[in-house]
């Protein structure tokens, strides 16, 4: 039975990155970026990145990193069968991070910039109806919800001791120190966000995702009719006064729901 059901489901995805009010004020570019693809066999790959505020080319770094990470996963022509091997999943995510790092370094060399000028965080997620895997360097959070309504933080913000520090893809040992998480459980929703939304979406003291934040958003993405309208609504939400009162940072949110 479950086979027929799962063949009928498909991913509905909505994602947006918007510029924080502090960056608007300073006429800076939004330094967040995201990229996603639904690959054959119901495999969703998504990447988000937050270019460092102090990096001259933070926007370039985050765009290149997310594009390269998604392309790397895409090139492997993976199947859900292959993803049943933990080793395969680990190498898939590691390769995606390596590809992203290499792409950023090549851009730095091509433009005679330093790696620090393109410093960026990176989260790469691969999700199927049977589970989800994430690799994360630096800040931000990836979450997933199972059929029972359990909402799990797959990763946690890696912000060092102080809130204004984090690790970056461009750091020499970034890939060795990345968080890797694999959750094998039938899932219905995944979400990925950058640090601008962290304080609104996560109960930091217990390190748990805030259900009243995610559940209405998951409901929203599950019921999308028109993709461009949905994206507009998400952008409007990220720019709403309720959010900008609480954070002036760039914001990125990727939401996905398995829909029958």
């Amino acid at each position: 039975m479950s086979t027929t059901l799962k063949q009928m489901v498909h991913w509905r995805v909505v994602a947006a990155s918007v510029c924080g009010t502090s960056h608007v004020k300073n006429e800076q570019l939004c330094q967040d970026a995201h990229n996603w693809q639904v690959l054959p066999d119901n495999i969703l790959v998504a990447a988000v990145a937050d270019g460092a505020g102090s990096a001259k080319l933070g926007k370039v770094g985050s765009m290149i990193a997310t594009t390269a990470a998604v392309e790397s996963v895409q090139k492997h022509e993976i199947s859900r069968r292959a993803l049943s091997s933990d080793d395969f999943v680990r190498s898939l995510l590691t390769n995606a991070m390596v590809a992203a790092k290499k792409a950023v370094e090549e851009e730095a060399e091509a433009t005679s910039s330093s790696y620090d000028d393109l410093a960026t965080t990176l989260i790469v997620m691969v999700a199927t109806p049977e589970g989800v895997a994430v690799a994360q360097i630096g800040d931000g959070v990836a979450v997933a919800r199972d059929y029972q309504g359990n909402l799990l933080a797959l990763t946690m913000p890696d912000s060092g001791e102080y809130i204004n520090e984090t690790t970056f893809l461009t750091s020499f040992d970034s890939i060795d120190n990345a968080q890797l998480r694999l959750w094998r459980q039938p899932i219905v929703n995944v979400g990925v966000l950058t640090d601008g939304l962290q304080m609104l979406a996560i109960n930091m003291a217990v390190g748990a995702p805030h259900k009243p934040f995610f559940f209405p958003l998951f409901e929203f993405v599950a019921n999308i009719d028109d993709k461009s309208v949905a994206k507009e609504q998400l952008v409007k939400f990220l720019r709403s006064e309720r959010i900008t009162q609480r954070t002036d940072d760039d914001l990125t949110l990727v939401l996905a729901a398995l829909h029958e």
């Binding site: 930091m204 009243p212 934040f213 929203f220 999308i224 009719d225 409007k236």
Partner: peptide, 20 residues
């Protein structure tokens, strides 16, 4: 889905203490 849906009216935020 209605295009009049206002996400900012249905989504609630975590209450985290201000960073110090």
């Amino acid at each position: 889905m209605s295009d009049t849906l206002r996400l900012d009216e249905v989504v609630e935020f975590a209450e985290n203490p201000e960073p110090r």
